[in-house]
Computed example of a mutant assay.
Amino acid sequence: MVWDVLIFLLQAGVAFVVSTALFDALHWLLHRWEKSPSPLLRKFSSWHWVHHKFLGLDMQVNPAYARQNICFHILPEYLTSMVGTALFLLIFPWPPILAVAVLRTIMLGMTLREEGLDYNHMSMDRVGGNQSLLWVNNNYHAMHHVYPHNFFSSFANVFDLIAGTGCQIEGRRFLITGTGGAFGGALVKALEKSGAIVETAKSGVDFSPGNYEAMREKLERADVLVLSHGAKEEDCWNANYVTFRDLIETFTAIGQTRLAPPEVWALGSEVEFHGDMGLAELKDYSASKRAFAARARSYYRSDDLIYRHIVPSSFTSAMGKGAMSAETAVGIALFFITRGVKYVPVTLTGLAVLNFFRFRYGNNATDEVPAAAE
Rank of each mutant, 00 (worst) to 15 (best):
38 S>L: 10
53 K>L: 14
260 A>F: 12
278 G>W: 12
271 V>Q: 04
9 L>Y: 08
292 F>M: 13
95 P>S: 03
151 F>A: 03
81 S>L: 12
88 F>P: 00
9 L>T: 11
214 A>H: 14
40 L>Q: 00
300 Y>E: 06
79 L>A: 15
295 R>F: 14
117 L>K: 06
165 T>E: 03
159 F>S: 07
250 T>F: 11
269 S>L: 04
275 G>N: 04
179 T>F: 05
309 H>E: 14
70 I>T: 07
84 G>D: 04
205 V>E: 15
57 L>G: 13
282 L>Q: 10
141 H>R: 12
164 G>P: 03
142 A>E: 09
71 C>V: 13
301 R>V: 01
227 L>F: 08
356 F>S: 13
110 M>P: 11
126 R>N: 11
177 T>D: 05
334 L>P: 08
289 K>P: 04
361 Y>G: 08
348 L>Y: 15
251 F>N: 01
217 E>R: 15
23 F>I: 05
224 V>S: 05
180 G>C: 05
66 A>H: 09
59 M>L: 14
182 A>W: 02
306 I>E: 03
241 Y>M: 02
277 M>V: 13
32 R>F: 04
122 M>R: 15
169 I>F: 10
288 S>L: 07
188 V>L: 12
56 G>I: 00
198 V>K: 06
340 G>E: 00
164 G>Y: 05
31 H>A: 08
351 L>M: 11
171 G>Y: 08
166 G>S: 06
137 N>R: 12
247 L>T: 01
254 I>R: 02
161 L>Q: 11
176 I>W: 00
155 F>L: 14
69 N>W: 00
28 W>V: 11
318 A>R: 12
74 I>A: 11
253 A>G: 01
27 H>L: 05
24 D>Y: 10
111 T>C: 07
16 F>K: 05
125 D>A: 09
373 A>D: 01
320 G>I: 00
187 L>E: 01
219 L>Q: 04
278 G>N: 09
166 G>Y: 06
271 V>N: 02
187 L>D: 01
302 S>Q: 06
118 D>F: 05
168 Q>S: 15
150 N>H: 03
154 S>P: 12
